[in-house]
Amino acid sequence: MEDDFIPVRLSVNGVPHRLFVEPRRTLLDMLREDLELTGTNAGCEHGSCGACTVLLDGQSVRACLLLAVQANGHEVTTVEGLAQHGRMHPLQEAFWEKQALQCGFCTPGMLMTAYELLQQNPDPTEEEIRSALSGNLCRCTGYQHIVEAIRLAAQRLREGAEAATSSGTTA
């Protein structure tokens, strides 16, 4: 088994990569160990805590439950891909303002889940947010500040989109 390294080509946060991995290597281990993208955390490694949530072609997945080889030919987005040119994404800004984190360990997974939610539903209700987050465990915050942060980010993103439309520019 140890001799069967398999080539994987993928794009992570817009950067193309080609590497050779063991068939058993998880996407999580490949991101953290091979690509040194340690923002994505390992909380349970059996798919129940959501700390390792990343996007695969825009859809949230548990990086601990996916094999690296399954990401071959796909685009992966991790928490490191949210900020642009050192500027935090509006979700990150809102999490900061609302103190939607304490130890920060679940936060990257929360952000990626919230990012996907706002792509699909730009104006979610509190109940829709809580439902979307139900697969992401947080042991510190009690979730309320996270819910508030996502609502705030949603509002700002909507206002930003409206402003962009009304001024005739493209986002």
Partner: peptide
Amino acid sequence: DPALLMGT
């Protein structure tokens, strides 16, 4: 928070 939010 910023470092925690950016995964660094």
